[in-house]
Design a protein around this nucleic acid. Structure first.
Length: 412
DNA sequence: TGTTGAATCCCAC
DNA sequence: CTAACGGTGGGATTCAACA
């Protein structure tokens, strides 16, 4: 008989917005609480990165969803206040959170930039009762780190994660096995971890709309429609079954990639190659910093109809140099591209070898010079291809609220 | 018969 | 009002080539 575990799932409420909120309150303690008003973090529409990355619970209540175009969000919620993303801020806050969490248990698994699992089984006795301890942790994060979290409490990761998704923000919830019928089974099946758009549609054909209905369907029937591996997984999940351990070791990277939506569609091969050069530089730099070489390279394209194409090749010899990445990438693009206007270009390096033991950073700073070079190259491309977009952006900015980025552009 | 590679799809955040 | 739609990464599936 296995011992019952105690698992917490910690989830930063509307993480990017919450961290933006913290930043603003450090500057002005009287600033409004961004989680209490219609607010969101989103990309730059002028650069065609205009989607919602995080939204306040208030915005959510007005129908705003993560991933939707900003324009659509504004139609639902005209008073929505938008903020640009700042990943340096997010990384720093994430690190501070993980540091604090690690003082509660060594069994800590960072699941994403804003989520973590804590296995409290062996350490809860140092703190107190499970629910009271989670409440104290929640308050401590708010007091010491300046942002709010939800904490889900249960006996495995799946149930803890489902629990942390209950009412937000700044709350702790339990979802112990005996609470499953009341708290989890009535939920729409799409809210179950790993049930996305496609699975939801196929389950709908089987008449399954809630997690409870999924929990009770014959497993063999389910597997015959969704495959035995996936079918078994979500059937177990719907019944609250998950034996996976909290993984302390961080998994080794399987690949390193970089992709970018272009401010303007590209139609010229040479222009596409210049983007590939930038991507090669950044992927190469990350490979070198990690001490990896790759044996497989993939070029990914998205055309202006949002169709995706990719081409990959196994390399003759493992590499991490910009020039070899670039040479192979251009070759792949030549085979792949039919000339349709490109909205996105991406480059991904996979089949990574074992990291070399010599770390570049001991001998040189791999960052500064190359990043400077990359930055200047990015600027050059932007100047070269962004002219139309910049003109459009400046027109747009005329009837937009303040704090628009001012772009300086040398005379053509 | 089984593995590997390539292209696509799916999912989470 | 299904578009004004990101970037990163892991995994599954399908098919062809190959052993």
């Amino acid at each position: 008989m296995e011992k019952q575990r105690l698992i917490y799932h910690i989830d930063v409420n509307s993480a990017f917005l919450n961290w933006e909120n913290k930043r603003r309150h450090e500057i002005d303690p009287d600033a409004p609480d961004l989680l209490a008003i219609p607010a969101a973090v989103g990309g730059d529409s002028a650069k065609r990165r205009g989607i919602i990355l995080a939204k306040s619970p208030v915005a959510r209540a007005m129908g705003v969803t993560t991933g939707e175009p900003i324009a659509a969000a504004l139609r639902k919620c005209p008073t929505l206040t938008l903020f640009p993303p700042d990943f340096k801020v997010y990384t720093a806050n994430s690190a501070a959170l993980m540091e604090l969490l690690s003082s509660y248990s060594p069994a800590l698994q960072q699941f994403s930039i804003d989520e973590a699992f804590l296995d409290m089984t062996k350490t809860i006795h140092l703190f107190g009762k499970p629910i009271a301890t989670a409440q104290e942790l929640r308050k401590r994060i708010k007091r010491e780190l300046g942002f709010t979290v939800n904490i889900g409490i249960s006996t495995n990761k799946l149930l803890a994660k489902m629990a942390s998704d209950f009412r937000k923000p700044n709350l702790c919830h339990t979802l112990f096995p005996e609470e499953i019928p009341q708290k989890m089974w009535p939920l729409p099946v799409g809210e179950l971890f790993l049930v996305g758009r496609s699975a939801k549609a196929r389950l709908s054909l089987l008449g399954i709309r809630t997690i409870g209905e999924l929990a009770h369907i014959d497993k063999a029937l389910l597997c015959s429609h969704l495959g035995s591996k996936y079918g078994t997984t979500i059937h177990n999940y719907a019944n609250g079954i998950d034996d996976s351990p909290v993984e302390t070791e961080e998994p080794e990277n399987k690949g390193i990639g970089n992709s970018t939506t272009l401010a303007q569609d590209i139609t010229e091969f040479d222009a596409a190659c210049q983007i590939l050069l930038l991507l090669s530089e950044s992927v190469g730099a990350r490979l070198r910093r990690a001490g990896h070489k790759c044996s497989c390279l993939t070029v990914e394209c998205r055309d202006n109809d949002f169709r995706n194409f990719s081409h990959q090749m196994t390399l003759n010899a493992p590499t991490n140099t910009t020039s070899q990445l670039y040479d192979n990438a251009t070759h792949l693009l030549k085979e792949l591209w039919n000339g349709a206007p490109l909205r996105l270009l991406g480059l991904r390096a996979t089949k990574l070898d074992e990291p070399a033991y010599t770390q570049l950073s001991l001998f040189e700073d791999p960052g500064s010079k190359k990043l400077e070079k990359l930055d200047s190259a990015v600027d050059a491309i932007r100047d070269r291809f962004g002219a139309g977009a910049i003109k459009r952006a400046s027109i747009l900015s005329a009837d937009m609220p303040a704090e628009k980025k001012t772009k300086k552009k040398p005379a053509p």
